[in-house]
Amino acid sequence: MRVAGTSYNEMMVSQLNLLTSQQQQLENQVTTGMRVTKPEDDPAAMGQALNMDTENSALTQYSQNITSLQSRSDLVASSLQQLQSLTDQATEIATEADGTATPTQLQAYASQVSGLIQQAVSIANTQDGDQYIFGGTKSSEAPYTTTTDASGNITAVNYQGNTSVMQSDIGPGTKMSVDIPGSNTTGSGARGLFTDSRYGADLFSHLISLQSDLESGDTTAIQSTDEPALVKDENNVIYQVSANGVGQSQLTAAASNNTTQQDAVQQSISSLTGADITQTIVNLTENQTTYQAALQGSSILLNLQQSLLEYL
């Protein structure tokens, strides 16, 4: 076949262009460590990577949600501990205030119970920052207000909160709450901490009744009414303590589950979009060898083209 003089140059230029553009692409892959950075690189992988990135970012958010639930749960747990020891003491007083107790002892118990009531109100109005944690979702005002008599004793405690609790997403399709409403007398929904009509819990009125029975020395009422009522309150608090423990372990499990899932998602993204560095470097070396050969070949050809002229 005849070969035109310009064919050499055209072929040479187009081959060298092809090789340099391949080189650039390979070098890009080596320096970024990524095979796919633009939609055109691998449209399907790009689409999947974007979806996984969405999943990854949601998992990051779930982990943040879990962290803030955990710190809230810790705060609730410390209030529950205080409350548990408080109900212990109250039940103990009610047990000891039987017929054998002297009126002086009963008066001393009465002022002890008065202190317990104050303490319980203060626990009930615990704040996380400026939010009250036992008021349901009505967190911006103190959930419990008190009525006092002339001598400063609390005669009634009124609940201002509601029975809803704040839920958060801790995983795909999984919601959780660590909050406890202070009082629930609706017969449904989250179990109240101080008052719940379903379980006979009504800590404040039981404590107030204990206090007034102690003051009046009515040990019969204490034994027959106040003590059994306080046991129900104690049980209710014990239930909340164990529910809080269960919640904490659920959160830990969810956190580790999220981490595992996130690792897997990130690994998938890497294997979808990452460059196989060894293979890429091998390809790059091959390409460079070809490029050098092409350059050398071209320079020989360019010299050869002059040959006939040189001989004449």
Partner: peptide
Amino acid sequence: GSISGVSL
């Protein structure tokens, strides 16, 4: 080129 091109 092989038909119409100039071969030096």
